[in-house]
Amino acid sequence: MRVERVLLKDHTTLGVGGPAELWTVETREELRRATEAPYRVLGNGSNLLVRDEGVPERVIRLAGEFQAYDLRGWVGAGALLPLLVQEAARAGLSGLEGLLGIPAQVGGAVRMNAGTRFGEMADALEAVEVYHEGRFQVYLPEELGFGYRTSRLPPGGIVTRVRLRLRERPLEEIQRRLAEVDAARKGQPKRKSAGCAFKNPPGQSAGRLIDEGGFKGLRVGDAMVSPEHGNFIVNLGRATAKDVLELLRRIQEELPLELEWEVWP
Score class of each variant (00 low, 15 high):
residue 173 E to L: 13
residue 232 F to K: 02
residue 144 L to V: 10
residue 249 R to K: 15
residue 139 Y to F: 13
residue 62 L to T: 01
residue 161 R to L: 12
residue 199 K to F: 05
residue 190 K to W: 10
residue 238 R to V: 03
residue 217 G to R: 11
residue 62 L to P: 09
residue 125 L to C: 08
residue 116 T to G: 14
residue 84 L to A: 01
residue 91 A to H: 03
residue 4 E to Q: 07
residue 70 D to Q: 12
residue 243 D to L: 05
residue 38 P to C: 14
residue 58 R to S: 13
residue 227 P to G: 07
residue 225 V to D: 06
residue 118 F to G: 05
residue 96 L to W: 04
residue 61 R to M: 14
residue 81 L to Y: 00
residue 200 N to W: 09
residue 81 L to D: 00
residue 27 T to Q: 01
residue 11 H to G: 11
residue 130 V to D: 00
residue 115 G to E: 05
residue 48 L to T: 02
residue 200 N to G: 08
residue 172 E to I: 06
residue 68 A to D: 15
residue 13 T to P: 11
residue 34 A to I: 08
residue 213 G to K: 04
residue 258 E to D: 12
residue 109 A to D: 13
residue 196 C to N: 13
residue 187 G to C: 12
residue 135 R to S: 07
residue 144 L to P: 04
residue 211 D to F: 14
residue 12 T to A: 13
residue 131 Y to E: 10
residue 174 I to C: 13
residue 122 A to V: 10
residue 206 A to Y: 07
residue 227 P to R: 03
residue 115 G to A: 13
residue 11 H to R: 05
residue 259 L to F: 04
residue 30 E to H: 02
residue 196 C to Q: 03
residue 109 A to S: 15
residue 82 P to M: 02
residue 138 V to L: 07
residue 88 A to L: 05
residue 141 P to N: 00
residue 25 V to N: 11
residue 256 P to S: 12
residue 49 L to C: 05
residue 263 V to E: 10
residue 218 L to S: 00
residue 205 S to C: 07
residue 98 G to T: 04
residue 183 A to P: 01
residue 261 W to Y: 11
residue 229 H to I: 08
residue 160 T to W: 04
residue 236 L to P: 06
residue 147 G to I: 13
residue 231 N to Y: 03
residue 168 E to D: 08
residue 101 G to K: 10
residue 37 A to L: 15
residue 34 A to D: 08
residue 204 Q to E: 14
residue 19 P to D: 08
residue 209 L to S: 01
residue 15 G to R: 05
residue 4 E to S: 15
residue 257 L to P: 05
residue 40 R to P: 06
residue 50 V to K: 07
residue 253 E to L: 15
residue 226 S to R: 13
residue 231 N to K: 08
residue 13 T to R: 15
residue 36 E to N: 08
residue 59 V to S: 04
residue 158 I to Q: 04
residue 220 V to R: 07
residue 39 Y to M: 05
residue 265 P to E: 14
residue 205 S to V: 02
residue 82 P to N: 06
residue 172 E to A: 14
residue 200 N to P: 12
residue 244 V to S: 01
residue 128 V to C: 12
residue 44 N to T: 01
residue 153 L to S: 09
residue 4 E to H: 03
residue 201 P to F: 09
residue 127 A to Y: 10
residue 155 P to N: 01
residue 42 L to K: 01
residue 217 G to P: 02
residue 74 W to F: 12
residue 22 L to P: 13
residue 147 G to A: 09
residue 40 R to E: 12
residue 111 R to T: 15
residue 85 V to T: 01
residue 87 E to N: 02
residue 220 V to P: 00
residue 36 E to L: 15
residue 97 E to K: 07
residue 182 D to N: 09
residue 53 E to V: 14
residue 174 I to T: 07
residue 262 E to Y: 06
residue 30 E to M: 04
residue 172 E to Y: 08
residue 149 R to W: 12
residue 57 E to T: 09
